[in-house]
């Protein structure tokens, strides 16, 4: 082939978006997007938005309608669940982690609150862009939905283990 991608990138490197390439590498390690090739990831990445949150910013509240999924690029995010009268931290997520993925399935309410523990940079994917993208692309939708099913089954499994280990003998 006369025009191979590597040669084009070597001569026209200035024309390519390096920030997106960095995001691409981060996304390929995120469990939700596992198995998507670079070509499919590139389609996905165009619709993502980047936002900086300062320490203490609430990203979303528990009970709100979920409309986006988040990927942590820098910093850390605390996931807090309200139980009875107290707030319990159920996870602290670092770079490469994702949260809020249930929003991709439907307009489900958020099951926990997300709070920026320190100054953080997040990638945000909105459900409407995701729906628009997968409408004509079964390769992306089937892979992400499979990953999502895997993540949810892992949650259920963890919950079962947690409950069984807490049961009195």
């Amino acid at each position: 082939m006369i025009l191979d991608a590597k040669r084009v990138r070597r001569y026209f490197g200035w024309a390519f978006d390096t920030t997106r390439e960095t995001h691409l590498r981060t996304l390929s390690d995120v469990p939700l997007f596992k198995g998507l090739g670079r070509k499919l990831l590139r389609k996905l990445i165009v619709d993502l938005n980047e936002k900086k949150y300062t320490a203490g910013d609430i990203i979303f509240h528990e009970g709100e309608s979920g409309k986006a999924v988040y990927v942590v690029l820098e910093g850390s995010v605390k996931i807090i669940k309200k139980s009875k009268s107290e707030h319990r931290t159920i996870a602290v997520l670092g770079p490469g982690s994702h949260f809020g993925e249930i929003a991709l399935i439907g307009n489900c309410p958020r099951i926990a609150t997300a709070l920026a523990e320190e100054d953080s940079l997040l990638l945000i994917m909105y459900k409407s862009y995701f729906d628009n993208l997968i409408r004509g692309n079964s390769a992306i939708s089937s892979r992400i939905l499979l990953n999502l099913a895997g993540i949810l089954s892992a949650y259920i499994h963890r919950q079962d283990l947690f409950h069984s280990s807490n049961q009195p003998e």
Binding site: K51, D57, I58, K67, A68, I124, Y126
Partner: peptide
């Protein structure tokens, strides 16, 4: 910060 999701979702 906590209104970003809804606002941008409507714009999108």
């Amino acid at each position: 910060a906590s209104y970003v999701e809804t606002t941008i979702s409507v714009i999108a």
